[in-house]
Design a protein around this nucleic acid. Structure first.
Lengths: 249, 249
DNA sequence: TTCTCACGGACCATATACGATTTGAGATAC
DNA sequence: GTATCTCAAATCGTATATGGTCCGTGAGAA
């Protein structure tokens, strides 16, 4: 173009235009869902969101379509979108699937994790152990995520990594995960973390690391199921197990 | 409603209205991509597609957004969409990820597969063995998919199953998979199929079934890599392995 | 009192229109 | 002959407008 004093406006355009409005809406909704500002079941009205973001409904529609494809919102024709409800069955399935992909990603990371990262993961786990006594599910969950991130982010397979991220995003929709529900699980969790770290630090077979990471997550899932079964059992209701869960009998 | 001769039109309306136009566009594009009528890299022009389907561009845009979120098309702002190109690195990653999720789905299916299904899988594999001599990569790939479908479709975890489907859809974008590229792989493949069937029929540990299924896919991936390395090696080019692939050293 | 049905509001689905951006070809200067 | 600049066509991004569907509400009849 014509050079000169247009720089400022050019920069502004570049910044404003860097993200399309539909991308903006997508980020906005995704963040608000992740931060629990929009709780599961919340009705997403296109026009309201468009007003909030000072845009038309068209970009909002596209954003919601993408969120739908990722399983973060459910959509009903001629009715609208709502934040995906993770019912208990869905939660179990999501945890199971996450165990698979996260385990694989961790296994593939194992040989690529730098000593510095390993050190950081150890510190985070120490921190987790430290907060066990004055227990706060919310903080614990956040630290827990941080810990696992270090372990799988080195996975060279971007596709697999993306699946892991989606899994976490889906589950973050739930109340502070299992730890709020089954506080006793936290202590075991920390111990299993230490075991996984030992395996990685000792240069164990990646498959062994993978299975350890997977079983760690599946154990959390199992703790949730057991806790639920207990409550149901006390209420004298027979609740059939939704899916066969453990591969190792 | 009012009975009589409106039935036909009523049915037509019900059928036409059952799928929204954006869903129609989505199915249309997805099918054409899967059938290779739209080859990778093909430029998807919104208006042309809208014209073809006798609709406006808005539903087409939404359909493409969904396909983008699934990784079947790539999108560039202000430029447009094109059918996702699976480059060799992407192919390897996709196969690796598919090995993980398909293996898991197969493992979780193992105990749920009916004898009838197992019988059918055996027949399909016999068919595969039969066509080994007058080899047709395209037919072989189709039968291969049929075989594996029987094994993982019984997976009770819908999420995992969905990941498997997406993986297959992504890879189907490629030319007739590895078998056209490495014909020698087909014979080994059939033998491995038989092994997996034996494991399932024998009531083996699901984890064992899972690892067998995973290694089966990863072996196909490895065959592709080896073939490529051979060609590159003959051309005297040093091609570094893209990712560490085998978990078992 | 309860069930049925018509009515109206809220919202979604799609079409059309206009502005913004990219891209590629042709012209011009070196 | 090559590189750069200019301009126009193609295409996308978004806004606005209109028609259709769903759902809650209230009146009327059994």
């Amino acid at each position: 173009m014509t050079g000169g004093d247009v720089t400022a406006s050019a920069v502004e355009t570049a910044f404003a235009g860097a993200l399309s409005k539909s991308q903006l809406a997508y980020d906005y909704l995704r963040d608000r869902i992740a931060l629990h500002e929009l709780s599961p079941g919340y009705r997403l009205v296109l026009q309201s969101i468009a007003d909030e973001l000072a845009m038309s409904v068209v970009p909002v529609r596209e954003a919601i379509r993408r969120l739908e494809a990722e399983g973060l919102v459910t959509y009903e024709r001629n009715v609208g979108a709502r934040v995906a409800m993770v019912d208990e069955h869905g939660y179990v399935d999501a945890m199971q699937a996450l165990g698979v992909v996260e385990g694989a990603a961790t296994g593939l990371s194992a040989r690529a994790i730098s000593p510095a990262d390993l050190q950081r993961a150890t510190e985070v786990n120490d921190h987790l152990r430290a907060v066990l006594d004055h227990f706060d599910p919310h903080a614990f969950t956040a630290l827990n995520r941080q810990f696992h991130s270090v372990l799988f982010e080195s996975c060279p397979n971007k596709l697999l990594l993306d699946m892991v991220h989606r899994g976490w995003a889906q589950l973050s929709g739930l109340r502070d995960s299992t730890f709020a529900f089954v506080p006793g699980r936290a202590r075991d969790s920390v111990a299993e973390h230490a075991h996984i770290l030992d395996l990685i630090a000792g240069g164990a077979d990646p498959l062994e690391v993978e299975i350890a990471a997977r079983n760690h997550r599946w154990a959390t899932m199992q703790a949730f199921l057991d806790a639920r079964a207990d409550r149901a059992g006390r209420a004298d209701r027979a609740v059939p197990r939704p899916t066969p869960l453990r591969e190792t009998p």
